[in-house]
Each structure stands twice: as C-alpha cells, then as structure tokens.
Computed example of a mutant assay.
Amino acid sequence: MYKPIYIFIGLRYLWNSHLTSFKKIITILSIIGTSLGISSIVITISLVNGFQNEFQKNILSFVPHLIITNKNYYINESEFPRNILKSSNVQKISSFINSKVLIQSKKNITIGEIITFKEKNYDSFKNYNITNILYTLNSKENNVIIGKKLAKKLNININDSIKLITLPKSKKNFLTKQFNEKTFKVTGFFCTENEIDNYQILINSKIALTFLHYCKNYITGWRIWLKDPFYFDINMFKKIKNNLILLNWKSKEGELFKAVQIEKYIMLLFFILILLVVGFNIIITLTVNMIEKQNVIAILQTQGLCRKKIMLIFITIGSSISIIGNLLGILISFTLIFQKKILNLLINLFFNTTNISMKIFPFQVFLVNITFILLSILSMLYPIWKITKSTPAKILSHE
C-alpha cells in the first residue's frame, strides 16, 4: 500500500490512463491557464524592473537624489549635517556650487546651469565619459565643458569662446543687481543622452568662486546620491538642522516618478486579477472533480477514511495543478525573457518599439510562485469542505 494514501489517490485522480478525454482536457487547460498567468506576471515584473533600472541608470545617475542647502542657496561647508552619514543608503556626497547663467555665443544666446568640478574629483563625473578632458578644468584657465546638445543650440565647436552672464537667484533683485559676466573657452563636450546635455556647464570650483563672488569655504549645498533612490529613510534626513532645507529628485523629476508609481500600481492590479483568474480556474477544476467523485468520497468515508484525509486528496490535486502550472509558467517566461528576439517580435506587433529592457530578481519570482501556490490552496478549502460535509448516507441514498 502506498503511503501516504491521500497523495496516491490524489495523483491517481489527477491523471491516469482511464480518465476520459473530457477530464484530461479540463486538467490540461487548468495547467495551461495557471502557467500563462504566472508567465505574464513574471514578464510584467521583469519589464517594470527593467524600466526602473534604465530610469535609474540614464536619469538618476546624473541628477542628485538629494540636495541639502539653505533658503539662500549659500552656505558654509562647516555646516554640513554629519548625522546623514549614518544612513546606510547614502552612496556618495559632494559639495557643489550651482547657478543659472545666460550663455552667449557669437551666433546665439540661451540659458544654462553651471556645475562645479573639483580638481582630481573624477568620481562624480565618471558617467559623463569625459575623464580624458576633465584635466582642462583647472584653476588657472577659464575653461568649461558643456553638453553636446547645448553646443548645437549655440552653434559652437571645441576651442570656441562663450560668455557666461550670472542671473540673480531672486526675482526681486533681477533689475537692481548688477550682472556679472566672463568669457570662457569651451574645451570639450559631453554626451549623456540625458536632458542635462541641453543646459549643463562644467566649470572648475575655484574659478566658480571668483566668477560668482562666493566667499572662501562657501558653497551652494551638498549633492547626495543614494544606493536606492526609490527608497530612503526620510526621517533620518528630517533630523538635520532647522536652517537647512532638503530637496529630493522627486520634486525635479516628478512626472517621471509618477509614471513609475502608476506603473507599479497597474502591475499590482494586474497581479491580483491574474491571481483571481487562476484561483477560479483551479476551483472550477476541483469542483468538477469533487462533484463527479461524490459517491467515491462517501464510499471512502464508510471504509474509515477520515474527512481530513479526504480533503487532503483534493488539496493534492489542486496543489499539483498549481505547482506544475507554476513551473511551466517560469519556463515560458524565462525562455521569452532570455530570448529577447521572440518577445520583441510579439511586442512590435502592438507597439512601435524596438528595444526593451528587462531585469529578473530571483526573490520576486520565488515570492510570486509561493503566493500563487498558497492562495490556490486556500481557495480550494471551502469547496472541499462543502463537499465532504455531506454524510455518506445522504449521498448514497439516491443509489
């Protein structure tokens, strides 16, 4: 005799050579429905992860995740709030001087933003791919490196000269403040495929101090990059001094952040809907099995098989469908994800795009599978309990 008996009986009811074609088709369709649901969820999650990864790589790697400054955007470096260093999410911190400027070339004029570069501080600008020309931003020459798109606007080339004119930070001082201007030589371009290419200008920090009339050891503030910009302990940063203010990347990239958040909510809704469909699918399959097996259930009860073990027979059937569907779904989704050409072809049928980014986290796949299996089992309990509640005498009285 096979032990445990309920697993042996459950697997026999799930599939055997004596099953009718109709019952086999129902079981196969139930497994296919589960596998398609799982594969859809895994692919969707990987697409969202890929989008977030590209968002963080292409946009948030150039934009500071947090900026600490004061209301005047003019602060002494000694006022740095050191308690921020206690946060494990902080990746790097750099002081900076920043100002809006008018940029004038021989043929055009536009608005830009200067960002300072400290000599030998290459880490903050490694994503710009200009390490070989950063040495030109020394403290002895009035040199700048600007974005390629900005250079196109101004219609200038390398070694051309541009004039930078400071703009007052307050609108009240716009007409009263005397504008400061200086001529700079363009020693190179950077191309990040980001919006900063349209306005950013890199300049040596010592040159900027003189140009903007900053006192020694005074800066605009501190730029902070986080390991995970989508999550940070805001309470840690709220403990900073009252005279300092905190600006995060969400305020600057608000619309894109909203798009990311909406995408997460849609994915959650999608996950719940597929979960319900798969759950109903398994319930229907089990209910058909149980209604057909009512007489067998009654006979097993009369032979001494307890109600708990009879319930475990049908839980074995439902769990087997769920587990097989999960494994098949993972196989389908991983095949489509790693063979991007197939998935690109399918996406291009509905959307005019050629490149998609996907990223898989094993923990997420494991969590999806465990959730599906557990909820599938929970969804089986009521119909199983309802069927096994009837007494054998009542069921067999019609025979």
Rank of each mutant, 00 (worst) to 15 (best):
L85M: 12
L85P: 02
L85R: 05
S87F: 00
N89D: 05
V90M: 02
Q91L: 15
K92M: 09
I93F: 01
I93A: 00
S94F: 05
S95A: 15
F96S: 02
I97E: 02
I97V: 01
N98V: 05
N98F: 09
K100M: 07
K100F: 14
K100P: 06
K100D: 09
L102S: 07
I103S: 05
Q104R: 05
Q104S: 04
Q104H: 02
Q104E: 10
S105G: 10
K106D: 15
K107C: 04
K107V: 08
N108D: 12
I109Y: 01
I109V: 12
G112N: 06
E113Q: 14
I115E: 14
I115N: 13
T116P: 15
T116N: 08
T116E: 12
F117S: 06
F117L: 10
K118G: 13
K118T: 15
K118Y: 15
E119G: 12
K120Q: 15
K120P: 02
K120W: 09
N121M: 11
S124F: 13
S124H: 11
S124W: 06
S124P: 05
F125M: 11
F125L: 15
K126D: 09
K126T: 12
K126W: 01
N127M: 07
Y128T: 07
N129R: 12
I130Y: 01
I130R: 02
I133L: 04
I133K: 15
L134Y: 03
L134A: 00
Y135A: 11
Y135S: 15
N138I: 07
S139M: 10
E141P: 03
N143T: 03
N143L: 00
I146G: 08
G147R: 01
G147P: 04
K148T: 11
K149I: 10
A151Q: 11
K152N: 14
K153L: 12
L154R: 00
L154F: 10
I156V: 15
I156L: 04
I156S: 08
N157Y: 08
N159G: 05
D160M: 14
L164N: 02
I165V: 13
I165A: 08
I165C: 03
